[in-house]
Amino acid sequence: MLNPRQIEAFRAVMLTGGITSAAELLNVSQPAVSRLITDLQHALKLTLFERRGSRIMPTSEAQSLYQEVERSFVGLDRIEQRARDLHARRAGTLRVAAMPALAIGFLPRFVARFLAQRPRVDVSLWGSSSTVVLDWVAAGQCELGFGQTPVEHATVLSEKLPAVAAVAVVPSGHRLAEKARLAPRDFAGEPFISLGQSTLLRYRIDATFADHDVSRQQRVETQLTMIACAMVAEGSGVAIVDPFTAQEYQGRGIAIRPFDPAIHIDMAVLTSAQRSLSTLAQDFLTEFRDAVAAFRLDASL
């Protein structure tokens, strides 16, 4: 039977070219290395080294054997390196899904920064509606999902992220762009681009204008805030959207202004109730929470 220590001694001799150097590499005595090589030759019934003067030279059999040994050790080295990377959270795989407001720009930029510090981490990043994100997490297709709250599902855990405030977006040359902050009365009679009626943000926007007895011209309705911003940039009306999407259109024909009273957008991280998060996912989530909290401060213009 081969002894792993014998193979290790053989490799060390082949790498260093001598018994003495191999002993130093392995931090053992020279007689111990000689004994291991002798036992290996006996077990294999092969002559692996020939003495030529004061040196030993590998035989052709030793050269052939070394190629196989090296392949095995490279595989082990890769396994050990992978384990070290996983322990240090520099390696692994993450599958992340998010609603469009995050997936359009904010989340990809965060992922890029996250990966820059972890060159061996692989990420799958998907974007869709909050309902689809929930389904992906429930089915185990994604480890982390980001969507709007409230969320109720038997196999999915929902944890609120720091809330952000919706912002007003108007064409950059619009008269309302001259104001530092906007309120419901500023939108009276203005062509308004509304979000789809199935969204919580639409409900809160309509409730706010109703509370202030302000009528708008409901000119366009869309499910996606990026479409709303694009139409605002073309002068089709004004809108109230999440700050993440608004940021992507900043400098592209729209002016972004804070809106009073604040209309909060609640977001949640969705995870499986049946599987624990990897340490890599935990790190990702911790840093993402901080990024959202910081953005909330930056977005309060």
Results as ranks from 00 to 15, higher is better:
G235D: 07
G17P: 08
G127Q: 09
F73W: 12
H42A: 13
R257D: 05
E152M: 14
L44E: 00
D290V: 14
A230Y: 06
E248G: 07
T59D: 04
T59E: 04
I254V: 10
L125V: 03
T16V: 09
I240K: 02
Y203G: 12
H153W: 07
A293R: 04
G17S: 09
Q250T: 09
Q282I: 13
R90M: 06
F244I: 00
V167S: 03
A291H: 09
V170K: 08
V133F: 11
R185V: 13
M231S: 07
H42T: 15
L157K: 15
A83N: 12
V232R: 00
D77T: 06
Q250H: 10
L102D: 06
F187L: 03
L280P: 06
A255C: 10
E152V: 15
A163M: 09
T131E: 14
A230P: 06
G75V: 11
P258K: 05
V121Q: 01
A97C: 10
G237N: 06
L115P: 13
F49P: 00
A83W: 13
F284Q: 03
A23Q: 04
E68K: 07
T279W: 12
Q6N: 01
E159A: 10
T59G: 01
Q67L: 09
R51E: 04
P58V: 03
F73R: 11
L301R: 12
R84E: 13
L2W: 01
Q247E: 12
Q223L: 13
P258H: 08
M231A: 07
Q148I: 15
S72E: 08
A239M: 03
V232L: 03
T271K: 04
R109N: 13
T47D: 12
E221V: 13
L46E: 05
S272L: 08
S194E: 11
V69T: 02
F49Q: 02
P171E: 12
Q41S: 04
E190W: 01
R95V: 07
L224Y: 13
M267Y: 14
R5H: 04
R109V: 10
P100R: 05
F110T: 05
A210S: 01
S130L: 11
G53R: 00
L107F: 00
K160L: 14
R185W: 08
T225D: 14
Q141A: 14
T199Q: 08
G53M: 00
P191S: 10
Q63A: 03
A262S: 11
V241T: 04
L157A: 15
A255L: 05
T38H: 09
T208V: 05
F187A: 01
A207V: 02
T222R: 10
D290T: 13
L46H: 01
D213N: 13
T199F: 00
V74P: 05
D213W: 03
H212V: 07
A165E: 12
V121H: 00
T59F: 06
G189V: 04
V121P: 02
